[in-house]
């Protein structure tokens, strides 16, 4: 009985119930919904948000926020495209350089946040302007017009199978798209970082009380900066996958993902004041949103343009419900203390 009660206290439990409910309702409404291939495709379409949300969770657990990651998607994409198509660099070198660029971007913002003490929201807001601007400038260097996007990445053979770079975005291993495998690996990595390593403990401690963390000998500044580097790195991975998937390097890929990423993280139960959250929660929340985006148009004919409304409603209801339930729990606790 006690275990059951504990289960109810976990936010992830509600997320699982919600996810199962989604499958039941959508599956009942339209049996086509349950085809694994379509579900995987829908996940692939949303993978950028899912991947970045994982690492933004780390940022938010320290009490920060990252609204620049979406602009780094476009920057990585165009850097890869420019290096490969205009400078003739080997595609893998181009990918590696783009990852380095992204890490530098994350390090720059992280430095200002951790070492200069500027508010994370402000710096990453500036970063989102700066990096999307840089992406546009890089795009201007290229011979391909900015609106067109650089395409023709290697390679697709005569049979239609994908090799090399495009395999990252379109390949299938044992029936599972490569992107999803990358996502699973990143989930494992993130879960290990946050829940099993010393690093994760430091993140939580900083989120709960940065001063206490500093006094207990943690180099809080370096740790905080590292979270922004990690989230920028994840954005670069997402950008690479996206480029390989759509075969187009464009400066504005991923524009408008910012709010979706934050939504996934907070729906997953991470507090934006820091100190609380889990990778499982973020993954479940990402899946919930993803399935919703896939199921609503398919089963209930909701226009794909109008998916903001249901997701917004759910976010509002969920956070309100959580807040009310939390308050009730606290007042119940007080009553119990009084009785004693």
């Amino acid at each position: 009985m006690k275990n059951v009660k504990n289960l109810f206290r976990h936010w992830e439990f509600f997320l699982v119930v919600f996810l199962i409910l989604e499958f039941v309702v959508f599956g009942a409404a339209n049996p086509k919904f349950l085809r694994p291939a379509s579900i995987m495709t829908s996940l692939v379409n949303y993978i950028s948000v899912c991947i970045i949300a994982l690492f933004v969770t780390l940022v938010m657990i320290t009490g920060g926020i990252d609204i620049q990651a979406a602009s780094i998607i476009g920057l990585t994409s165009i850097v890869e495209g420019y290096l490969w198509s205009d400078l003739g660099v080997n595609i893998w070198v181009a990918v590696a350089s783009a990852l380095v660029v992204a890490v530098l971007c994350g390090a720059l913002s992280g430095f200002f946040i951790a070492y200069c003490g500027v508010q994370p929201m402000v710096v990453t807001l500036g970063g989102s302007f700066l990096y999307s601007g840089l992406a546009l400038l890089v795009s201007g260097l290229s011979a391909t017009p900015a609106y067109q996007g650089i395409s023709g990445f290697p390679s697709k053979d005569a049979v239609g199978a994908f090799h090399g770079f495009r395999f990252l975005g379109k390949g299938v291993i044992l029936g599972v798209p490569t992107q999803i495998i990358v996502y699973l690996v990143l989930i494992a990595l993130c879960a290990w970082l946050l829940h099993r390593s010393k690093y994760g403990e430091k993140l939580y401690l900083i989120g709960v009380n940065a001063q206490a963390a500093e006094y207990s000998g943690i180099n809080t500044r370096a740790v905080i900066m590292s979270t922004y580097v990690l989230s920028a790195f994840s954005a670069a991975i997402a950008g690479t996958l996206l480029t390989a998937n759509v075969d187009s390097a464009k400066y504005n890929l991923g524009a408008g993902y910012t709010l979706a990423i934050i939504t996934a993280v907070v729906l997953g139960g991470t507090l934006n004041t820091g100190g609380k959250g889990s990778i499982l929660g973020t993954v479940l929340a990402s899946l919930i949103i993803c399935i919703l985006r896939y199921g609503l148009p398919l089963c209930f004919g909701v226009s794909t343009q109008n998916l903001d409304l249901p997701i917004g409603v759910i976010l509002v209801l969920v956070v309100l419900g959580r807040e009310i339930a939390g308050q009730r729990m606290i007042s119940a606790l007080f009553k119990r203390v009084k009785r004693k």
Binding site: L259, L307, D308, P310, G312, L315
Partner: peptide
């Protein structure tokens, strides 16, 4: 978080 939610609702 809250205004993110209303942002989606109003956009809808």
């Amino acid at each position: 978080i809250f205004t993110l939610g209303t942002n989606g609702v109003v956009r809808g």
